[in-house]
Amino acid sequence: MKKTGYLHDSMYLLHDTGPYHPEMADRLTAIYKGIEKAGLLDQLTLIPAIRADIKWIETVHTSEYIRRFEEVCLSGNRTFDYPDNQMCTDTYETAFLAAGGVLDVCRRVMTGEIDNAFCAVRPPGHHAEQNEAMGFCYLNNVAIATRYLQMEHGIKRVGVVDFDVHHGNGTQHIFEKDPTVFYYSIHQHPSFTFPGTGREFEKGEDEGQGYTLNSVVLPGQGDDVYQKMIQRDLLPAFERFKPEIILVSTGFDGHMDDDMSDVNLTTKGYSWIMETIVKLGGLYAKGRVISVLEGGYCLDRLGELAENHVRILLNG
């Protein structure tokens, strides 16, 4: 059995998105309860949040943006950049704790303390652009972790797999000119859902051409299409790229019971996706797979989805 880290902290509940917002603190509670109920807590290494050093945030976001985020947050403003991004005065700190927690998990994986991990953080990150908050995201946790791994631990090739049902525009744009980061995303077709990017013809820019890959799923499609596309697109791409570590943007919002999307993944389908990624981690990345939570809003399903997710990491 693998040594699997579980980044979990009640501090992540402090980011309050107000009433009727899908990205709510209860999501993390549902995830924790699912893992607890399955009796898996004893087998996991629980990791608490720590605050990120701003120098790592600045490897992705501009100083101007970070300052603006802090000012808007502390001024008591309830939204930032778009009305979607509901926040409270704790949001800025919580976002630093989310990014910092993920960095600490990366450190632990790189020093061999743990093999792989699931980071149940809020706020999520993959929509956050270098200079703009978007789609409930403020700091791009996965992008910051990527830069940290490269600069602090000498990792040359980072593979990012994003299976949130929405395209991770932020992550793609941050790395689209960079051949040292392969960004693969599978999501609902952008003409049918937020944010409207991640079209099949977006394949990276300049030096990074060929290091971005998008698979698009149509409304109503589910497990079999995901399997077909991941086998057709992701497997050969990673065989060529050979990532030294895999970061996963995990979104459970493609589940058939999650009404944030029109695609119909089942709980079993989600397990297949994660098993496949963990296999790729074993093949190319010495088993180093770090999963970071993005979306997933169906409170009745998050428990079982998270349970299966960490079980697959444990079985690595």
Binding site: Y20, H21, P22, Y82, P83, D84, H127, G135, F136, H166, F192, F194, P195, L218, P219, G220, D259, M260, D262, Y297
Partner: peptide
């Protein structure tokens, strides 16, 4: 201009509008 269309979709349905199957 939002990622959060769950409530508005429900509201429109409640108002008696038919949401068209995206396909």
């Amino acid at each position: 201009l939002t990622n959060n269309v769950v409530r508005i979709k429900k509201k429109l349905s409640d108002l008696g509008y038919k949401l068209i199957d995206p396909m």
